[in-house]
């Protein structure tokens, strides 16, 4: 059986366990919107799961400013990472875990060292597309280029 299937099962079991307790903010910077729960910090057991499934990829990453249209060029085409709005601590970090629950627009991505970051809650489709893109980054082992707002919420995401 593929390891990914095994991992998915293990993670589900872990999440179920933690769901029995009230979700609480962990050590990482966490931003909660009006009453919506936040994911717990990854346990050591969960960290093991993460390390088993993240593959290495290109680490050319910096952060880009917010805005409705993309401005960066894919690194494989020689695009330079934007340094103008780079935020220390988020560059070159892969998405190692995802979390969502039944509240509206409450999806999170766990970055390698920055920890849990909430995805934009601006609109329904914005929240959904960002969840898809974060999941794509997770699946491919890509380190996204991100821009976060002052509350620590991810408002812009590039994945190469």
């Amino acid at each position: 059986m593929p390891s990914s299937t095994k991992t998915r099962t293990s993670r589900a079991r872990t999440s179920k366990t933690s769901a029995s307790a009230a979700p609480a903010p962990g050590k990482a910077e966490i931003c909660t919107a009006a009453g919506a729960p936040a994911p717990h910090d990854l346990s050591e057991q969960e960290q093991d799961l993460v390390q088993d499934t993240v593959t290495d990829q290109v680490d050319t990453v910096a952060l880009d400013g917010s805005g409705p249209a993309p401005t960066m060029t894919p690194p494989q085409l020689g695009g330079a990472a934007s340094a103008t709005s780079a935020r220390a601590g988020l560059s070159g970090q892969k998405v190692v875990a995802l979390w969502a629950e039944q509240s509206n627009r409450n999806a999170w991505a766990h970055l390698q060292t920055a920890g849990w970051k909430k995805l934009s809650t601006l609109t329904d489709t914005g929240s959904t597309t960002m969840t898809l893109l974060a999941a794509h980054a997770r699946a491919t082992g890509s380190a996204p280029d991100l821009a976060v707002d002052s509350a620590g919420v991810i408002g812009t995401m590039y994945v190469w």
Partner: peptide, 22 residues
Amino acid sequence: VLGGYCTGHDRNGWVYVQDNGW
């Protein structure tokens, strides 16, 4: 498809398509 991009705005998902750009 060489890249994906989105913001939290409504229907603001983009893809970078080879030889076409964003």
